[in-house]
Amino acid sequence: MSGGVRAATGTAALTTELPVGRSTGWWGMVMFVVTEATLFACLLGSYFYLRFQFGAQWPPPGIAPPTLLKPLVMTAVLLPSSLPVIWAEHGIRRGQRWRLRTGLAATFLLGATFLALQANEYAEKLREFTLTTNAYGSLFYVITGFHGLHVLVGLTMIGWLLAASLRGGSFGAHRHDRVRNAAIYWHFVDLVWVAILFTIYLSPRL
């Protein structure tokens, strides 16, 4: 068995060029998202539990049913924000760093806009009720606040990727695990918003 030939034709040599199979990072992120999703499921489940145990009128007397315009605008901002990341990720897989940078920047802007809109929404709601008004208030702020925190974490990740990609020497066709993992997280944050939109804003009208 000649070592030299083996080393050159062995799987180790052949597979260093292009990654094969899922990375551990991918699995780690997926599992993390799964447990986070369970957390949101419990949170939204608690909302419905309290709501149906409460009685007929929901939101409780004194609080108007939520208006839809602003949350729909927020949805229109947040949901499409996944597209630039996808585009950026496909770009870096081909080694196109400009696509990575542009895509990340676009997503970052959309995410930041979402947070600004949410702050505006809070300013309005806080005049009507607060965290301590009643269980509805607690649910409203904790659910949306917890999601907002996730958007903030996601934004930090995107901003951080952007910084790393601007430095150079970080990502390329053979090294983009971090981009993909952050993208998975961002898509998750996006999708959770849909569930929250349904729970908080739409379901009281059903």
């Binding site: 150079g168 020497g169 390329g172 066709a173 053979h174």
Partner: peptide, 9 residues
């Protein structure tokens, strides 16, 4: 930080 060649840019 990695060399560009290794990254594939």
């Amino acid at each position: 930080r990695r060399p560009e060649r290794e990254l594939g840019v």
